[in-house]
Simulated assay, not measured.
Amino acid sequence: MLKIATTQVWVNDQEEALAFYTDKLGMEVRADVTMPEMGDFRWLTVSPAGQEDVAIVLMAVPGPPVFDADTAQAIRDLTAKGAASAIFLTTDDVYAEAEGLKARGVELVDEPQERPYGIDCSFRDPSGNHFRLTQLTEF
């Protein structure tokens, strides 16, 4: 049986991303390993507290030899526009969670709204990655 274990978001600055995901979103670090033999590549993962079976890699956009300069810049540009990824988070109370996020300095793109599938709102991380926070309706 296949399971999703890890996903990634592109980040401009891993330290800035780490602070946002832990301090503002309340996530926990799952791995933070730097590999000198790979040019100091840093494998940095976080996940929601208590959800240890899924991790989000906070991946710095690599340059050569992985990506040429134009490709790396294109990834940064798409990420800044919120077009490179989207992560959907869920909660039992979107209104309370949205207020908590705002109190910790997260700027919502849109306030909680009722939709056919439930209630949701959205926000972006410092690199531009788009998040939807949902409270799903039982069908």
Rank of each mutant, 00 (worst) to 15 (best):
A5R: 14
D68N: 15
W43F: 14
I87M: 13
Y117Q: 06
F123D: 02
E138D: 15
A83I: 00
F139Q: 15
T79R: 07
W10V: 08
Q113M: 12
V109Q: 12
Q113H: 07
V94F: 05
F131P: 05
R124H: 03
E37M: 11
G100I: 00
A103P: 09
D77S: 14
W10R: 14
P36G: 01
E52P: 13
A55T: 13
Q8W: 10
A69N: 10
D32Y: 09
Y21T: 07
E99S: 12
V11W: 07
R30E: 08
K81G: 03
E97C: 14
M1C: 05
V9E: 01
E37R: 11
A80E: 11
K81M: 12
A49G: 03
V11P: 10
L2P: 14
V9M: 10
E107H: 10
G82Q: 10
Y21R: 12
Q8P: 00
G128A: 03
V66T: 13
D13S: 01
K102R: 12
V109L: 15
A103M: 05
A86L: 15
L89T: 07
A80P: 06
E99G: 08
E52Y: 12
I4R: 09
L58I: 06
T22C: 09
S47Q: 06
P62K: 08
P64W: 02
W43T: 02
E107G: 03
P126L: 03
D120E: 11
T79K: 09
D93P: 14
R42Q: 07
V46I: 12
L89W: 10
D40Y: 03
P62A: 04
A55F: 08
A83V: 00
A98H: 01
R104D: 00
Q8D: 03
T79W: 07
T6P: 00
E37V: 11
A5Y: 05
Y21D: 08
T71R: 15
D13Y: 04
K102V: 05
E52K: 14
E138P: 05
V66F: 10
A49D: 01
V57N: 08
G128W: 08
D53K: 15
V29P: 09
A98K: 01
T91Y: 09
E111T: 03
G82C: 08
A103Q: 13
L101H: 03
T45S: 12
V57F: 10
A84K: 00
R124K: 13
D93K: 09
W10K: 09
G82P: 08
D120K: 06
D13P: 03
A72Q: 07
E138I: 10
A98T: 04
G63K: 06
F41K: 01
R30V: 04
A5K: 12
A98D: 01
L18I: 04
Q8L: 14
E97S: 14
E37G: 06
D40P: 06
G100P: 04
L133V: 02
A84E: 02
T79D: 07
T6N: 14
L133T: 04
R132F: 05
L18P: 12
T45L: 11
S122L: 02
G100K: 09
P64D: 11
D92Y: 00
E52R: 14
R104S: 11
G128R: 02
V106D: 06
L101W: 02
F131W: 03
V11C: 13
G63I: 07
V54L: 11
D77F: 10
E107L: 12
L2V: 13
I119Y: 02
K102L: 01
N129M: 07
K81Q: 14
E114H: 11
